[in-house]
């Protein structure tokens, strides 16, 4: 299957959209009509051809445009990509994982030839053709994490494992839902999750940490997380809050369908072999409300989830200002019919 990469923007004129064929493969995050936190982790096995769970690192029609947006963010703010000095080995683990996976899963787009330490990598969509010595960072234009992070959709954090905890010691984060690498870098698992409401009391993080500390090599896991974003903007960082915060005041009942986007993170967890660190890709998918409701099951369910969302979560996810009109708008797509289990459209 050849992917037609869209020429589109995630800022200013916001030309981002999903083509009709791309809509049904959206990772809709609600398996039921009600939402509450859970440690909703499952093995990251190849699942359902055509879905974003088919391959280790999903490549879709937004790939090239997302990589251009990342380059713009990094040019403005190099602090979005940071690695503490001990994280270089982990950077190379990341290079290997992405290159091996993509060359295997998308042979028409990516090619990798390994001859001992000498690696030849071809990335056709981004027109990259590089030869380098694996493990020799001086042969790359930048840190290995940045090199490969500019070629893979989604933000990537790398967590060092020591002292029975995980430490956010490296990352390339340009498409985040309102958290800052610059603020969090060097923090441990509980520190960087401190702002999340309710989940601490539920013991979610204790269980999640125990799970991650024992994550075996070759057995990645995944979960979905979600929020809402006004306009298809990838870079909703605290650093740029003045640019996107005011967008929330622009939502009206008339423009809600095009303005409000369901923002889903496909989070995966990978044990890295040489560094014993954990790679944490956070892959963001955006879909306008108008696109979501083209799938009747999703329209019904999203209405029910939003209507019954706990107030703490409405607040934490930054939805307070437009939550009531969104629920009202969504209600026109909910005829009360039952919905089928699972996330995929009927």
């Amino acid at each position: 299957m050849t992917i037609q990469f869209r020429n589109e923007t995630f800022r200013n004129d916001f030309t981002y959209a999903n083509s009709p064929g791309n809509i049904p493969r959206f990772p809709f995050p609600f398996p039921e009509d009600v939402y509450m936190y859970s440690t909703n982790v499952e093995p990251h096995h190849a699942t359902r051809a055509g879905s974003p769970f088919e391959h280790a690192f999903d490549v879709d029609e937004h790939y090239v445009a997302e990589m251009k947006d990342r380059a713009l963010v990094l040019a403005d703010d190099p602090g979005r990509c940071q690695a503490l000095p001990h994280m270089e080995t982990a950077g190379w683990d990341f290079v290997e994982l992405v290159m091996v996976s993509k060359a295997r899963d998308y042979p028409d787009l990516f090619e990798l030839t390994i001859d001992g330490d000498r690696w030849h990598w071809i990335n056709k969509p981004l027109q990259i053709d590089d030869t380098f010595i694996f493990g020799d960072s001086s042969a790359l234009p930048c840190h290995p994490m940045e090199y490969i992070g500019r070629q893979v959709q989604g933000d990537h954090a790398i967590l060092d494992q020591r002292d029975g905890n995980l430490w956010l010691d490296a990352g390339i984060i340009t498409a985040q839902a309102d958290w800052s690498l610059d603020f969090d870098v060097g923090m441990n698992f509980f520190e960087w999750h401190a702002p999340v409401p309710l989940a601490h009391e539920l013991g979610v993080f204790q269980r999640a940490l125990k799970f991650l500390l024992s994550l075996p090599q070759g057995q990645p896991s995944r979960r979905l997380n979600w929020t809402l974003t006004v306009n298809p903007r990838l870079d909703t960082s605290p650093e740029n809050y003045p640019k996107w915060g005011p967008d929330r005041t622009t939502v009206t009942p008339e423009n809600i369908g095009e303005k409000i986007h369901l923002r889903v993170e496909l989070q995966t967890f990978w044990r890295l072999p040489r560094s014993n660190a954990i790679l944490f890709p956070i892959r963001t998918y955006l879909m306008a409300m108008n696109e979501v409701v083209t799938q009747p099951k999703w329209g019904r369910r999203l209405h029910r989830v939003m209507r019954d969302l706990r107030p703490e979560l409405v607040e934490y996810k930054g939805l307070s200002r437009y939550h009531p009109i969104l629920v009202e708008w969504l209600s026109q797509f909910d005829d009360g019919a039952p919905t089928s289990p699972g996330i995929f459209p009927d």
Binding site: L84, P85, H86, M87, T89, D160, Q161, R162, P216, Q217, G218, Q219, P273, S275, N276
Partner: peptide, 13 residues
């Protein structure tokens, strides 16, 4: 055999 598991890794710092 299982894949390798490291509970005694070097602290790279």
């Amino acid at each position: 055999i299982s894949a390798p598991v490291n509970l005694f890794s070097l602290d790279l710092r």
